[in-house]
Amino acid sequence: MNPTHLAVDGYVEAIPTPGTDQGTATFELILFPSNADDMAPDAPDTVFACSTADPAITDMLLTEVQPGDLVRVCGTVDQPEASDAPARLTVCTLEVLPAPPVPVLHDMVLDRYGKYVVVFNADTDTDIDIGADAVPVFTATGEWVGHAASPDAIEVLIDIHERVHGSGS
């Protein structure tokens, strides 16, 4: 099979190790999918067995790169004879990337009202008719307070909770 030139982003699986020859290093790279939102949660990871003979990349791998780092690598990939073995990627360039931002879950926003936490635009149980504008309210320690009928009613719900349970809860 002919080698294919490839540029991919991925996470370093484990601590890179020195290769068998002087000035070389090996590591495993888990592909960072560009379409992660469209993938099934149980989809298998794509893993590349990477190696390099570039002294600068070897030095970076063995002294700076840590497991879990997001990197962009360019090089040539060869598929091994054994179908269950990972593809071999010979790396000619390596760049450590900043960590990707943490995704926001369904536009959910948490806000604090003193010792209370409210959840805006949260997914709510559709079996209960609480209204489209209802806002779940909790104490900062996680105790359930209730649903405020709307954002305007949050302070009323908190006031009622403090009168019933005391201001110390």
Rank of each mutant, 00 (worst) to 15 (best):
A53T: 05
V145P: 06
S167A: 14
D78I: 12
G19C: 04
S34M: 12
M108H: 07
P18G: 11
F32T: 00
E143L: 15
D84M: 07
P41H: 05
D54C: 12
T26V: 13
A40H: 11
G10N: 03
V118M: 11
L89R: 02
L97T: 00
C92Q: 10
L70Q: 01
I130D: 08
T76E: 12
L110D: 02
P136T: 00
V135D: 10
D78Y: 08
G10K: 01
P55V: 11
P16K: 01
G10Q: 02
L110W: 04
E13V: 11
P55W: 06
H147G: 02
D21E: 14
D9Q: 09
E81F: 14
A149Q: 12
A82R: 15
P100V: 04
A7D: 12
E64Y: 13
R163Q: 14
R72S: 04
P100G: 05
V65A: 02
L31I: 05
D133R: 14
E28G: 15
L29W: 02
A122C: 10
D152S: 10
A14D: 10
L110M: 05
C50A: 08
V164E: 07
T58R: 01
T90G: 06
T20M: 14
V71F: 06
G23Y: 06
P98I: 02
P41M: 03
F120V: 05
V91L: 01
L70C: 01
D127K: 09
I160V: 11
I158R: 02
T26S: 07
G114Y: 11
P67R: 06
V12Q: 02
T126I: 15
V164Q: 07
G146A: 01
R72E: 09
F120N: 12
A43T: 08
A25W: 00
T93H: 12
C74D: 10
S34N: 14
V102P: 04
S51E: 07
V109R: 13
Q66Y: 07
F120W: 10
G168N: 10
E162N: 08
D111S: 14
R88E: 15
F48H: 09
A7Y: 08
I158V: 05
A56G: 04
P101I: 03
C74N: 12
T126M: 13
A49G: 06
Y113V: 09
N2A: 14
I154T: 01
V137Q: 02
R163T: 09
T4L: 15
P33S: 04
P80V: 04
A14W: 10
S169R: 15
V119M: 04
Y113Q: 08
V104E: 08
P67Q: 04
L61S: 03
P136A: 02
T26R: 11
L89G: 03
D84L: 03
G10A: 03
P86S: 09
E64V: 13
V118A: 14
A7H: 11
G75T: 00
Y11H: 08
E162M: 03
T126F: 13
V137N: 02
A36V: 10
A7R: 15
R163W: 08
F27P: 07
N121T: 06
A99P: 02
